[in-house]
């Protein structure tokens, strides 16, 4: 490669770098704007031109978590998410392990079926859940929403865990069988300790999915079990005067997710291709 070409390539790289910086900044404007709004007093929030430099205040961040029921909603969100993870991940892991160990010609159709199920419109599932929930008097209870979230989460968990189990060599199962393990013992003693990182990733993704879920939470919860997304959606709606407050709430909801995302970074693509986080 000639020196001239190398210089040309370096210039392109720099252009791309600067372009990406610009794009990233513009792309993050809504987020930055929300964070700024959450730190503003109303007199700074409603100005033309928009205020960039102001005296930040944490007043609304404190207010939203103390004077409103947000702590209660957070608890609801956590209970429901944790419940979903504790049912979905163990059950999904067992099935995924078995799927990764049976012949591919049997596993293939099951995996395709699960993938298809994942594509079902959630609305079609929300209606019967709502009707049955009404009959059984279970609307606005934890178990109903947890079961609904397990339903949409299970195919995803199985897909994700299946990928992790495939990476654990089958030789280990065979060695364990020869060493005297039943299938259950081989799973518990040999495979499970090796699958723990994968299960952590699956658990975090499931947690994220449940924490972010909106449709089922909207139609299946009421005053007793309302989750954070439902609360912020109704809260941050129309009333302009509470912008700073709702921005503080929204930013607060976002923070743990950013944390989880930083942990999951390495596995993001995997989670995404096993099934989108949202939906």
């Amino acid at each position: 490669m000639s020196a001239q070409m190398r210089v040309g390539q370096q210039r392109t790289t720099w252009l791309i770098f600067i372009g990406l910086c610009l794009f990233t900044f513009i792309n993050l404007t809504p987020l930055i704007w929300a964070v700024l709004t959450s730190l503003k007093d109303p007199r700074d929030a409603f100005t033309i031109p928009p205020t960039i430099i102001f005296e930040p205040t944490l007043k609304y961040h404190i207010q939203v978590w103390t004077e409103n029921d947000f702590v209660f909603y957070l608890m609801n969100s956590l209970i429901i998410s944790a419940g979903t993870v504790f049912i979905s991940v163990p059950a999904g892991s067992l099935a995924a392990y078995a799927l990764s160990r049976i012949p591919r010609r049997s596993a293939g159709p099951i995996l395709s079926a699960l993938f298809t199920i994942r594509m079902f419109p959630h609305m079609l599932l929300a209606i019967p859940f709502f009707v049955m929930g009404t009959f059984l008097n279970m609307i606005d209870t934890y178990p109903l929403l947890i079961l609904a979230l397990v339903a949409i989460n299970q195919p995803f968990t199985i897909w994700l865990m299946h990928g992790f189990f495939l990476e654990i060599p089958r030789d280990l199962d065979e060695a364990a069988a020869i060493d005297g393990c039943s299938n259950w013992q081989a799973f518990r003693i040999v495979i499970l300790p090796l699958a723990r990182p994968g299960m952590t990733v699956a658990a975090l993704f499931s947690l994220l999915l449940s924490y972010n879920e909106f449709l089922f939470a909207l139609v299946l919860t009421g005053t007793d079990t309302k989750t954070l997304p439902v609360a912020i959606a109704s809260f941050g709606g129309e009333d302009i005067s509470s912008w700073s407050l709702s921005a503080a709430g929204a930013v607060g909801i976002m923070l743990p997710i950013v944390l989880v995302m930083l942990i999951l970074q390495r596995h993001l693509v995997r989670g995404l291709t096993a099934g989108a986080v949202k939906g």
């Binding site: 060599p169 030789d171 280990l172 065979e174 020869i178 060493d179 300790p193 090796l194």
Partner: peptide, 20 residues
């Protein structure tokens, strides 16, 4: 019979040692 009841031992190509 189940592999464990055959009174055999096997050395695998990949060794198949339990990593943990």
């Amino acid at each position: 019979s189940h592999p464990k009841d055959r009174d055999i031992a096997m050395v695998f190509q990949s060794y198949a040692l339990y990593p943990h």
